[in-house]
Lab assay of single mutants.
Amino acid sequence: DENEERIRAFALYKGIDPEKARELWERGEINKDDEEKAWREYK
């Protein structure tokens, strides 16, 4: 689903483990601007 892809995109963008990215996502600790930037680059 799209959230999974967004988490993966963010992990790649930040160079972090996707599981770590998922934890940040679930806790609401992902910066929305960074997340959008990562998503645009990923697509």
Rank of each mutant, 00 (worst) to 15 (best):
K32Y: 08
R27Q: 09
E2A: 12
A38Y: 07
D34W: 05
E4Q: 07
A38W: 10
F10E: 04
K43M: 13
E26D: 11
K43C: 15
N31D: 14
D1M: 12
A21V: 08
A9Y: 07
Y42C: 11
E26L: 13
K14L: 15
E41R: 08
P18R: 09
E35R: 06
K43I: 14
K14G: 03
K37W: 08
I16C: 06
W25E: 00
E36A: 08
R27H: 08
E23H: 06
W25H: 06
F10T: 06
K43W: 12
I30R: 02
L24A: 06
W39N: 02
E2C: 15
R8A: 08
L12Y: 13
A21H: 00
A38L: 04
K14W: 15
E23W: 09
G28L: 03
A38P: 01
R8K: 14
E36S: 06
I16L: 09
G15R: 05
I30M: 06
P18N: 11
E35W: 15
K14V: 13
A11M: 02
I16M: 09
D17W: 03
I30C: 04
F10Q: 03
W39L: 07
D33P: 03
I30A: 02
G15E: 05
Y42Q: 03
D33W: 10
K20C: 15
D34F: 03
R22V: 03
K43L: 14
G15L: 03
E29G: 07
N3S: 14
E4N: 09
Y42H: 04
K32A: 12
Y42L: 05
E5Y: 06
E2R: 11
R8L: 14
A9Q: 05
I16E: 00
D34R: 01
D17N: 08
A9E: 02
K37H: 10
Y42I: 04
D17S: 15
Y42N: 03
P18Y: 15
W25P: 00
N31H: 08
D33Y: 09
K43R: 11
R40C: 14
R22I: 03
E19W: 08
R40H: 13
F10I: 15
A38V: 03
A11I: 02
D1A: 10
Y42G: 04
R8D: 05
L12C: 15
E26H: 08
K14I: 13
I7Q: 01
A11F: 01
E26Q: 11
D17M: 07
A9V: 07
W25D: 00
Y42E: 02
E19V: 12
A11D: 02
E36V: 06
